[in-house]
Design a protein around this nucleic acid. Sequence first.
DNA 1: TATCTTTACGGGCACGTGCCCGTAAATTCT
DNA 2: AGAATTTACGGGCACGTGCCCGTAAAGATA
Lengths: 352, 352
Amino acid sequence: MKKESTSQGVKEIARRANVSTATVDRVLHNRTGVSEKTKKRINEIIKELDYQPNLLASRLASKKIISIAAVIPKVSEETNFWEAPLRGVKRAEAEIKQYGVHTQVFFFDLNDKDSFSSTIAEVLRGDFQGVLISPSYIEETKKFAAQCAERKIPFVFLDSDIPDLHSLSYIGPHLFKSGYVGAKLLTYRLDRNKKILIINISKEIDNFNYQKIEEGFRGYFADRGQPMEIVRIDIRETDYQSVARHLTYVFHLNKDIGAAFVTNSRVHTVASFLKNSHRTHVSLIGFDFVTENVSYLENNVIDFLICHRPEEQGYRGIMALYQKLVVNAPVSKLSYMPIDIVTKENYEFYQN
Amino acid sequence: MKKESTSQGVKEIARRANVSTATVDRVLHNRTGVSEKTKKRINEIIKELDYQPNLLASRLASKKIISIAAVIPKVSEETNFWEAPLRGVKRAEAEIKQYGVHTQVFFFDLNDKDSFSSTIAEVLRGDFQGVLISPSYIEETKKFAAQCAERKIPFVFLDSDIPDLHSLSYIGPHLFKSGYVGAKLLTYRLDRNKKILIINISKEIDNFNYQKIEEGFRGYFADRGQPMEIVRIDIRETDYQSVARHLTYVFHLNKDIGAAFVTNSRVHTVASFLKNSHRTHVSLIGFDFVTENVSYLENNVIDFLICHRPEEQGYRGIMALYQKLVVNAPVSKLSYMPIDIVTKENYEFYQN
DNA sequence: TATCTTTACGGGCACGTGCCCGTAAATTCT
DNA sequence: AGAATTTACGGGCACGTGCCCGTAAAGATA
């Protein structure tokens, strides 16, 4: 089992074009110093042979190191959600390290806009050829995108999207559809005459996301002409006490709530409240495979979790940049993750 | 951005040990021709430096081609299920081709034991260093495993497992749990006093799989002490006419069937029957993201499909062999795929 | 002791690409 | 026309590893 020894690659092209490999190389990397005539001739041969450069040799010979920055929220006490994308980033890193690609992860505090800004500034000061970023704050991200455009640095949005900023790619959920699926699951066994409660717990960040999810959720009922009575509540503090206070009030006003839909991963806080107040008959659905949520899934307090393979997201985000920067292959602008349904029965095999 | 020019790898080891790179190479590949003394010295340095060979250079320099065979059923009119694993295999192939790994796919007829045997024989005649195989026929697979063991060829089982044959790895679903999830989904909105029908359509192949799935299905009710009335039927012909005939009979005998569970991807045949006989009020669940099934999902005839990322399976199967043969890294013996729940609402984002 | 065999190692080319450096030839400038 | 500059290209080393071949030194045999 030997490789075929037919002279391959650049050498073969050079032989056929009657030039040296250096000249072929110049054409391949469209550098200057080649006459139009020979350039054309070489390009024809390249096409004819359907030449694919040997990545091994290429990366081995190249002294360049490509640096990619990943900007994601740090794991907080509140949620360990971002552990998963981080794992994905690390997995991708390990895989492409041998190609001379270096990744550096920057963490910011999800509850602190300044931390986001300063992290971005730090990244821009560094010499990175590509950036993977979770665009948590819209205005700051816009500025960042402008800077990247100026320096021709490709960037990929992770987990939530901000359209029209010319990102290389968006990798994350289709928010509308996620809400849609949530509605389906929630009403699967719900009485028609019960009310539904939409709960949005967050400190005013990525409104855009929640809005899209809620649209999807309501869209489901619109599509089937089922005008359910839907109550909604925004809670701007994320601690248990605040959430409990607000929820107590809502449940006091609405005695006949049969189901609750939480628009993000903080569903475990609601689960905790429902359990403590002996309201576990209320169907509960939320997002993300984080430890607290899973334990309430186990206890039957949360009925379903909707997940979007966060680890896979991290992995794909880095790989998209790798494809662009190293392989120079086209990258699809939108990469929607599957909308996974996780229950008590299948969670143990769930792979982020 | 330059790579650190510190002399790396084998050369550095050689320098420290005061030998040539050839000698280090001999130690690394434990070939003969090195005295115990120097061998020990070199090994110590290797450990000290935590030397990781550069795969790029290694594969580039090596003239060896590694050949992997993949043995899977061919796509039939009956089902296009195996398209997905094939895609996965191709994807893996494209990725590792540059490392001098060559894959060849062999197809057999799922309904023809002889075709399976002869394909296996063909593979064994060829010079392959690893085999990925869908072990459809148990006895034949046992013989195959014995032959592989003799020739020290690692093999990976795909989609269904036969334990105790010392496969390098099993990549596929956890069958028991899949049945368990099916039961949960089926009964989610089922009347207590309705009967459940288990349908097994197949020509006697991989009994083992169906048995495990059914165990899981029944296990769900056992766990909750819900003694549902369960009717089961085995159908040994896979064409629509035969299935319809058998089902007509069963539904005639049992007027109060509220839900049906099909143990494999042939659920679309049942869906067709239910639709034709105006029995779409019966909940229906089955397996696999194949075209026909998806269309019945769209029509609301099939409620849920349970899927196991077949493309991912094919991909991982090849990559497991790659890990073993090229990287020489350990491979986990069991790799259970997630149990995905696919509905009308989320199927469009399902990624095999 | 002279010849043959074995052991233990070093030298060096090859893999395909990147890229620096050198230089005839062509072009432009005095 | 001669000098200076630019253009267009070739030679060749380097990347880290695999592996063939050659050879001193040690040991075995006559």
